[in-house]
Design a protein around this nucleic acid. Structure first.
Lengths: 205, 205
DNA sequence: CTCCGACTAGATAGATCGCTCTAGCGAGGA
DNA sequence: TCCTCGCTAGAGCGATCTATCTAGTCGGAG
């Protein structure tokens, strides 16, 4: 009993959604990959595919932000943390043959115009990422409004780079995004808070 | 006979792909929306859904870049052009109930790990956007390598903002992306080339 | 005129879709 | 012991999926 059937279903569904999206993932495919009986799926998620989707989105969103926090907290300062996070995302992308990028982006685009419950779940995840990231930035002395805009910008470049990188099977876009995110954070922080290793552009993007 | 059956099929498929993605769009749905007979679909695209997809991706990518060029060329300078483009994208998003964003992003994420021909088509469109945008930037005196990185950054923030904006049904992320793109272009341009209206941050992001 | 190829038209095959249903297993409580 | 109930197990339903197939329409070339 390493993991419960329910958790196994959620885990493999998250994987499948990330790579093939919501409509591209079948219920049969899920139970097969999770080694779970079909009946269990509808026992745990009586609302069907939509309920399962909402749960997976919330869970994946939470886990991904915790990964971000872990990496940032392990770094000596915020700028280094952001750098490490983008570098890690690029490494994962290469190691997984450009399959594992954002856990919810594919689903978010697919369902934005076709399922309100799913759309709302993705919106809540993004908003939570924004608020929590902005909070961390603000804790370094950046005014709230600017902190929020900075958080949005970081997520913007990350998500956009994931699209380009997966399509081109190259991390070039992610590298550019990382540099831009680092520069933006550096520029926003009060001078004292940023030890500023060399390498990143000090001004401009 | 305003448009040929083939063009009508391509047009409505582009619309459907943009909103519901590749797997989320059915062949029946396409012929119904295009008011075309089913047989015509396989007459014009014997390779089936995949061939149709490749054609739609190329065509949509080309048309979208032409839109970008039209807007930029109509503006007095590059910075204004970029500003107008992001503002236009935000307006379209609001007017279409957050349905019409990037014509290929949804498909790009869906097919990246499941169809090589489709993945390649999206990669070629993105690369063409990068090269042509970089060319325009370089024409203003920016070194080639920096111009390419700037082009990638602009596409990064645009695509990322489209995800967030469609999910949250708000253009906040797109506004942030626009400001960042403007600031990046302004910072990269030699001082002479940018008339620099006020409003955008002069340095930092 | 005839003939031919481009295109229209839609029925239908075969697989897969999400989902429902009934049956049974097996551990814990009465 | 027996019953209950959370969960397993998978057959199967109707709908829908992509794709194929045959038949028919229509305009232009010879």
């Amino acid at each position: 009993m390493p993991t419960s059937t329910r958790d196994r279903i959620l885990d493999v569904t998250a994987d499948l959604f990330r790579q093939h999206g919501f409509t591209g993932t079948g219920m049969k495919q899920i139970v097969t990959a999770a080694n779970a009986p079909f009946g269990s799926l509808y026992h745990f998620f009586p609302g069907g595919k939509e309920e399962l989707g909402v749960e997976v989105i919330r869970r994946s969103g939470e886990m991904y932000f915790e990964l971000f926090e872990t990496i940032v907290d392990a770094a000596p300062d915020l700028v280094s943390g952001v750098r490490d996070f983008f570098a890690g995302a690029a490494a994962v992308l290469r190691e997984t043959d450009y399959a594992d990028a954002c856990p919810i982006a594919t689903v978010a685009l697919e369902v934005a115009s076709s399922s309100e419950p799913l759309r709302q779940a993705t919106a809540e995840v993004f908003e939570s990422w924004i608020i929590r990231t902005a909070g961390r930035v603000a804790a370094h002395g950046v005014p709230n409004e600017e902190a929020r805009r900075l958080a949005i910008l970081i997520i913007n470049v990350l998500e956009g780079a994931f699209i380009l990188s997966r399509a081109s099977r190259s991390t070039e876009a992610l590298d550019v995004a990382g540099d831009a995110a680092i520069a933006a954070v550096q520029a926003a922080l009060p001078a004292s808070s940023s030890p500023s290793r060399d390498g990143a552009r000090p001004e401009g993007w």
